[in-house]
Every structure is written in structure tokens, then in C-alpha cells.
Simulated assay, not measured.
Amino acid sequence: MTGIGTLPDTTEQADLREMVRDVISRYAPPERVRELDEASAFDLELYRALGEAGLIALDAQVDGSAGADPRNQIIVLEELAAGPTSMAVCLVVQYMGVGLLTEYGTELHRSTVLAPLLDGSERVSFALTEPDGGTDVARVMRTRARRTDEGGWILDGAKTWISGPQHAANLIVLARTSVSERSPIDGITMFLVPTDTPGITVRELDTFAIHSLDTCEVTFQGVKVDGTAVLGEVDRGFRQVLGTLNGERLNAAAAALGIARGALEAAVDYGRQRQVFGRPVGSFQVGQHRLVDGAIQIEAARALMLQAADATATGARVDILSAMAKVAASDAAVDITDAGMRLMGGSGFSKEYPMERLFRDARLYTFAPLTNEMLRNHIGEKHLGLPRSF
């Protein structure tokens, strides 16, 4: 690896980045990443190592007194995405869980769910998206939770495109609990539901990429939980999640940036070594300029990401910056993986090199956790003051 990229880290952040790279080199070398991708298998050994190293907790406290610093989360995610990309996607979800449990969890939630999440012994899965709704999920949410006479709840409905539920111990589920005339985002409650609760069915979907993390449909049929399953306030679950979704966009930007950087490093390494017509393939101007453009995109996306991370850490408004960072980083990942494939030709098409996997994995972040088109709509309306375009 060439180590491309300006890394404006503090000493502590540089140490953290080096720690992540050390864990990856020991537990997830390129050949293992390739094997697990081809086998569609999750790297449990790497996940546990990340937990043991404190890279899931990142100073978040079980008692809820402190959460993880987003400026540290993006370092972990970028480094993972440049190599074992599926694990970066997994940690985007885990970091959401850490944030929600830290802020809204009860003492019981924190001791039974947050504690094993922080040390890497368990995972959570976040169940929001539904078959009939993506961006407009609150408006069309069909998953319902109704109260029982005993003070508990019964959940019915279905979620889809859910990351990691097959091996997660708990699901964070959003379900409609009442109908609000004010706004579709009101009347939705967040629940913490063990995945082994009777009535839950998980079906894995066959996906194009991110093969080392399961993507599933989850069905709830008469799923009974007691009153302690509510995470936060009844009917305000979606509003509680909104701040976390801004953080998810920031972390998605970090993952996309890692993919972009990993692809650029792979292409540059190849361009220096591969000889054609008696000279390195990277010496030809068209291919070289594409890689230069990619390097520029990476640094522009990084600057936006760091601004968004600083804003998040200090409590400033972050929705515009996180949206810009996610769009810039995901566009960079798509453009650079395409440039890498073009430079490498048949070699890029081969599974012997990481480029074909990065090419596939990069496409996730053009539409997750929110489509780039919808983020551009948001930026146009809220940042530029243009009329609403949808």
C-alpha cells in the first residue's frame, strides 16, 4: 500500500489510525478479505479484535455518561473501508447502536445490550427501511406496535435491506404506535427487540456487494415484548433517530472515503509496476490524470468530512456538512474505482486484485443511507435556499 492521502491527525488520532491498521494487518490481510468475500462470510475474529482493542467503544461509557467522539469513529471506518469494507459497513451500524443506547437507553438496556456491544461480544442491527418505503419510510411505515393489557407491546410488519440481523443479538426497530395529524415522523416508537424473540423471521437477500455482511428482510408476526423494550420516548422514536441519521451519513462518508482511498492506492501500485510498451502503465497521461482527479476528490471529500465531524463533536449544525461529505465521498469512490478498473484492464476484473470488490462495494454509498439525489435536494433547499424539488 502506498499510504496515499493527507492525514491531518492529531497525535492521538495518528496513534488511533496506527492501531486500526495494526489490527487489520493481523486479522484481515488482503487474502483473507478476498476469501471471506467469496464465501459471503462475516469476519467474527476481526470484529472481536476490534472490540477488544476498544475500537467499537471509542471511549463511550456503559453508564451513558459519555458517547464516542465522531472524529475517532471516522478514522476507524476509513481504515476498515480501505481493506475489509464489509466490516466498515457493520461498524456504521454498531456506532448507530452505541449512540442510541448511550443517549436513550435505560440502565437495563445499557447493562444487557450496550456493554456487550462495546466490548465486541455482541452486535445490534438497525431496522428502519420497509418494503414500501425508503427515503419516505416514516410516511409509509406499515410496521405497527400495539399495546397489550399487561403494559407490553405486539409488533407486526416487515423491514428490508437490514444489515447484519442474522447474527445480531438485538434489533433496534422503529414501528408506528399512533397516527399523528401534525407530521408523519410523529407517532413512531423505537424498540429494542432480541432477535430470538418468537415471531421474528430473518431471510437473507442475495446482494451485489458487501458480501461479508448479511443484508436481510426481517418479518415480525405477533412479536411480543414488554414495556422495557421501548428505547426512549413513546411516539418520538423517529425524532430521536434523526440526529443519529446525520451521524450515519458522516460515517457513511468515512466508509466511502476509505473505499476511494483503497482503490486509489491499488491503482497507483499497479500503475507503477505494470509495464506496457516498455513503460509503466501509470505513466500514460489519460490514466494518470484520472488518478490525479481521484486524489483531488479524496482530499476535497476529506475536508468536508472533517468539518462535519468537528461540527458533530461540538454540537453545531451538521446536516448540510454531513450530506455534502457523503455525496462527495461516495462520488469519489465510484469515480476512482471506475478509473482503477480502466487503468488495470483485465487485472481489475480479476478477483486476484481488490479493485473488482471495491468497484462493487463503492456502489452501496450512492444510495445508502440516503440516496445522493435526495441529499442534493436537501442541500439545494436548506443550503442554497432554492424551491423544494420533490
Results as ranks from 00 to 15, higher is better:
G247W: 15
W153V: 08
R17E: 07
A81W: 06
D59L: 04
L242Q: 15
A308T: 03
L36N: 05
G54A: 01
S163D: 11
A209T: 04
G227N: 06
V241Y: 15
A60G: 07
G83Q: 12
A323K: 08
E233M: 09
Q94H: 07
Q73I: 14
A253R: 02
N377K: 13
N170Y: 15
A260T: 05
Y104R: 03
A260C: 14
G315E: 01
L55Q: 13
L128H: 13
D269N: 08
E107Q: 13
A252P: 07
G232C: 00
A82C: 00
L128Y: 12
Q297I: 02
S330Q: 05
E381C: 01
V93Q: 12
V225W: 01
G262A: 02
A254C: 06
T314L: 09
H383F: 10
M344Q: 12
A339H: 05
A339D: 01
W161E: 06
R32E: 05
P131W: 02
W153P: 02
V225G: 08
G151Q: 07
V92E: 15
T11H: 04
G199I: 10
P30E: 06
R236Y: 13
E45C: 03
V193D: 02
P8G: 02
S347D: 14
S350Q: 01
L358V: 11
R360A: 15
G294P: 05
R357Y: 12
A115K: 08
V20A: 01
L155I: 15
E31R: 10
Y47K: 06
G83I: 06
G120E: 04
R249I: 09
A309D: 03
A303W: 11
D149H: 12
L304F: 10
N170K: 00
Q166D: 09
V137P: 03
M341Y: 06
L257S: 10
F220Q: 00
R32A: 00
Y270Q: 02
A254H: 07
Y365K: 05
V281D: 07
A255G: 11
I162W: 09
D335K: 11
C216H: 08
G294L: 08
A175P: 03
F191N: 00
E233A: 12
E38S: 11
E107G: 04
V23D: 00
W153L: 05
L171Y: 04
G164Y: 09
V234Y: 03
T197L: 09
T2P: 12
Q221L: 10
D361R: 07
A158K: 15
T148F: 09
A209L: 08
K224M: 05
A300Q: 14
K224I: 01
T135G: 04
T177C: 09
A252K: 12
L291G: 05
M141D: 07
V318W: 11
S330W: 11
P280W: 10
S178K: 10
V173L: 03
A60D: 07
A53D: 02
Q285N: 06
S65I: 02
N72E: 14
T195F: 09
G340H: 01
L100M: 12
D9V: 02
H289Y: 13
P116C: 13
R272T: 08
T102H: 03
M344F: 04
D293E: 15
G294K: 06
P8H: 01
A39R: 13
A255E: 10
V140F: 13
G222I: 05
